[in-house]
């Protein structure tokens, strides 16, 4: 009798704590979702509904044609193609370079390794804007302005990714390496057959960051290109903003379709992504 009562009490307590936990999580999630919901509902509002000072969540009459107008305001079909092409290429090349460099910094022994690594990290301290004009001059001298080379190659090396992967590689026990070498495994083979499969979460994280970074890149693309056929989505988004006013409803419609691919990518990879952040964060 007593046991049953205790059991019941225990279950109740568990339910209450779980309920509270879920309550907090749902509230947090709702708060995070709010801007997205606002973006989506705003994308189908009429212009005068965008500028109300009071909050109006839903449009009186949904203006679905906003999407059509936004899509036609700039050559978004070309921009999408370019954004995909550049983001995917950069993402794959970069992950190859980063894992090779990170492997060297984490597992190999060579002269000046630590100094070189600190120098690498030091470049992260320089803001990109400072290097914009020198980089532009370099691109002009290479004859790369207005080509995919300028949009892809400078971005295929990322110190941040190398750093992130190195830290992850360091967390993989060195004994594995020794055992593999004893069994006659070469260094590159070890990287490909042992390290990389073990580092999937970190690799996915690095790739996603790169994809998002490339997808959102604006000033670099604008400066390095001159023809619409070489430009990407963020350039298209500026069409709706001006110094004297902005077409928020079209901007929100365009933002919705501009971020859809990232959202889909995230949903597909979210398990690895979250795991990746959690694990790389654990062992810094």
């Amino acid at each position: 009798m007593l046991a049953e009562h205790q059991m019941w009490q225990y279950r109740l307590r568990k339910r209450v704590t779980r309920g509270l936990l879920y309550g907090v999580l749902i509230a947090g999630a709702a708060l995070m979702m709010l801007p997205f919901i606002w973006m989506i509902t705003s994308s189908i509002k009429a212009p005068h509904e965008m500028t109300l000072r009071t909050i109006q969540w839903l449009p009186e009459v949904p203006q679905w044609q906003n999407y059509k107008i936004a899509w036609e305001a700039a050559p978004f079909d070309i921009y999408f193609r370019n954004s995909f092409l550049i983001a995917i290429t950069v993402m794959f090349i970069e992950v190859i370079f980063s894992s090779l460099a990170a492997y060297a910094f984490a597992k190999l022994r060579f002269f000046g390794k630590n100094v070189l690594f600190v120098l690498f990290l030091g470049t992260m301290m320089i803001p990109g804007e400072v290097m914009l004009i020198p980089n532009y001059i370099t691109m002009v001298n290479f004859g790369w302005v207005d080509t995919y080379y300028a949009l892809i190659i400078p971005w295929t090396v990322s110190v941040f990714s190398i750093f992130l992967l190195r830290q992850f590689f360091l967390s993989i026990p060195h004994e594995l390496f020794e055992a593999a070498v004893l069994d006659g495994c070469g260094k590159l083979k070890y990287l490909i057959t042992v390290m990389l499969p073990l580092s999937k979460p970190a690799l996915v994280t690095v790739m996603l960051f790169k994809f998002i970074g490339s997808w959102n890149s604006f000033l670099w693309v604008l400066i390095m290109t001159n023809t619409p056929s070489m430009r990407t989505i963020p350039v298209g988004l500026t069409y709706f903003v001006s110094d004297v006013g902005s077409y928020y409803n079209y901007l929100m419609a365009a933002s919705t379709f501009a971020m859809a691919p990232i959202l889909i990518l995230f949903l597909l990879l979210q398990k690895q992504f979250i795991q990746g952040i959690a694990r790389t964060g654990l062992k810094g």
Binding site: I133, V145, L219, I223, V241
Partner: peptide, 18 residues
């Protein structure tokens, strides 16, 4: 781009002679 971007781009192009 917008005026600020255009200015940046002009300054860059002046230093690169483009």
């Amino acid at each position: 781009g917008r005026y600020g971007d255009l200015n940046t781009k002009l300054v860059a192009s002046l230093s690169a002679r483009t």
